[in-house]
Simulated scan of single mutants.
Amino acid sequence: MAMNIIEKDFRSDKFQVLWTLLFTLYMVLVTGITIGQQFEDLGNVFPFVDFILFFYVPMMSLWFSRRSFRYLNEDSYTQMLYYYRTLPIPVPVIVYSRLIMGLMAFLFNGLIYYGSIYLISPATRAIMDIPSYLAFVGIWQGIGFLVSGFYIYWEFMVSGKAYFHRALLLILITSIAVVSMSMMGFSLFKFSAESAMRWKLLSPVMWGSLIIGLGTFLLLGRRTLHMLKNKRDLA
């Protein structure tokens, strides 16, 4: 039944794949050159690269649909829950369908974003072979899983305005963390790149990031399911 919800969601908003694709390509244009320059000069740390990856990677779990554009003004995520409850659809199916859509979005956006950067950046290809680059991508995808779990939790549990405020708070915390690490001479981009080049697909940083990130993603999905059943009134 979860796949039926996903199919219906794509049928009802046929342009969400297009909008998602266009936004991802836009991010490639905005960040691709800078990331390539950072690969070329790992000795110098550019905090902007850490920040943009922390900011954008969790957003890879999103499909840019009418619902996501209208969540602030229309509280569209809550309206979606009301709608599904009237059908009725079991709460687990609703949550599972969102988690599956998040994983599908990660795959779609990740292939386009990371693949495009590797293709357009000679500096990246010069310093990293494909196994090393895949390890680098795995590290950041793990971070994406970790953070996006909170976004999905907020989609289901709070209003559109509260979702917006919490997202801003998360961005603020991320900014402070990036600046603090930079002041101490540490860059997660540099650390992840060096780990990937050293260990390739055997990188413990990559596997640790994926296990922790995906584990947190699934645990927050389970927490969301529990809270929807017991705390949030959808009647």
Rank of each mutant, 00 (worst) to 15 (best):
Tyr114Met: 08
Tyr56Ser: 10
Ile5Asp: 00
Thr31His: 06
Arg11Glu: 04
Leu170Asp: 04
Ile5Glu: 03
Val178Trp: 04
Phe10Leu: 02
Tyr113Lys: 00
Met59Cys: 14
Leu220Pro: 00
Tyr113Ser: 05
Tyr113Leu: 06
Met157Asp: 12
Gly208Pro: 07
Ala162Phe: 00
Lys8Glu: 13
Tyr71His: 13
Ser68Met: 15
Leu201Arg: 05
Met183Asp: 10
Gly208Arg: 06
Asp13Pro: 01
Ile6Tyr: 11
Asp13Trp: 14
Phe191Trp: 08
Leu53Ser: 04
Phe108Glu: 13
Gly160Gln: 04
Tyr82Glu: 04
Met181Gly: 09
Pro204Glu: 07
Met104Gly: 03
Trp19Asn: 14
Tyr83Ala: 14
Val178Met: 07
Ala162Gly: 03
Tyr84Phe: 12
Tyr82Ser: 00
Asp129Thr: 04
Met157Ala: 03
Val17Pro: 01
Gly110Trp: 10
Tyr114Asp: 00
Tyr114Glu: 00
Thr24Tyr: 11
Phe106Asn: 02
Met59Asn: 11
Leu107Val: 15
Ile94Cys: 12
Leu29Ser: 03
Leu18Gly: 09
Thr86Pro: 10
Phe156Pro: 06
Leu119Ser: 04
Arg232Pro: 05
Val91Phe: 01
Phe150Glu: 11
Lys231Val: 13
Tyr153Gly: 01
Asp233Met: 03
Leu214Pro: 11
Arg125Thr: 12
Thr174Phe: 07
Phe48Ser: 15
Thr24Ile: 13
Ile117Val: 09
Ile35Glu: 14
Gly144Cys: 06
Ile120Val: 15
Val179Lys: 15
Trp154His: 02
Leu220Asp: 08
Gly185Leu: 00
Glu7Ser: 11
Trp199Leu: 08
Ser116Thr: 12
Glu74Pro: 08
Trp207Cys: 08
Val57Pro: 01
Leu81Ala: 12
Ile212Phe: 02
Gly115Met: 11
Pro204Cys: 12
Ile117Lys: 10
Ser68Gln: 15
Val57Asp: 07
Ile35Pro: 04
Glu74Ala: 05
Tyr56Thr: 14
Arg222Pro: 08
Lys229Trp: 06
Gly110Phe: 10
Asn109Ala: 09
Gly215Val: 07
Pro90Ile: 13
